Amino acid sequence: MIAPVVVFVIGLGLLGWGFFRQRKRDVMDATPTLTCAEIAAGAQPVTCEVKGAATPGPRGAVRAPFSGHECVWYRAKVTVRYEHHEYRDGKRHTTTRERTVHDDTCPVPFGVQDGTGQILVLHEGASLDGASQSVERYEPAGQNVNLFGLNLRVNFSNVKGHRYQEWIVPPGQPMYVLGAAGVQDRQLTMRRPDGSPFIISAISEEQLSKRLRIEMYIGYIGGGVVIAGGLIWLAIKALHG
């Protein structure tokens, strides 16, 4: 019975993923777009959308750790690929696995300039959609050794190599941000709203909405197909039980 349970869990996971994609899209459709000037004129904090160009925050631009590119935001990730050994039935089995050993985002807030003013995005580790990938590199482990004129790669550990990935948002990148906006210490800020998605995107609202719609259908249709397949499987097993 373990296999049918796994199938149903996968199906429910896909349905849940589709639901959260739909919820995110519905929130975008229902949230008003305001300019920085309109936010500044308001007396109370408000959940809204802001569209503009990415600009450095009060601390200035930052340098991405792997590429060294100037940016306002980055994500740097390192994955190790290694051989895993285990013994079953008196035999040694070797599989290649991967594990993330470093996954860091820029802690410095950045601004969004829309022509009427600038708002500071306090992302605090929130995910960012559509950032440009600036590094995609795999470095095999070990050292190059020249032996009798032959270049060989020598590696005595179970580590096979490291994969380096980096994503950045350069200054001037068009941005779409949905969050709780208000004035803090005489500075317009946007942060994670209570009970609502915090959306930070380097692609337009229209592009993001289209992508969320596709992902929503994938989740709903895929989840329905997986669960239906599981029910059919159980029915066949019951008939031949």
Results as ranks from 00 to 15, higher is better:
M1K: 10
V6K: 02
V7I: 15
V9E: 02
F19H: 06
R23L: 13
D29F: 10
A30K: 09
T31W: 04
A43Q: 12
P45Y: 09
P45R: 05
V46I: 15
E49I: 08
K51M: 11
G57F: 09
A64W: 05
P65T: 01
S67Q: 01
H69W: 02
V72C: 09
R75Q: 10
V78K: 06
V80I: 12
R81C: 08
R81V: 15
H84C: 01
H85N: 04
E86S: 15
Y87W: 15
D89Q: 12
R97N: 09
V108L: 05
G117T: 07
G117V: 07
I119D: 00
I119V: 14
L120Y: 03
V121F: 02
L122H: 01
E124F: 08
L128W: 06
A131P: 05
S134R: 09
G142P: 04
G142I: 09
Q143W: 09
G149Q: 07
G149S: 02
L150V: 13
R153H: 07
N158D: 11
K160N: 15
K160P: 01
Q173D: 02
Q173K: 14
A181W: 02
A181N: 05
D185M: 05
Q187W: 05
P193I: 13
P193F: 02
P197I: 11
I200T: 10
I203P: 00
G219P: 03
G219L: 10
I221G: 02
I221R: 02
K237W: 13
H240Q: 14
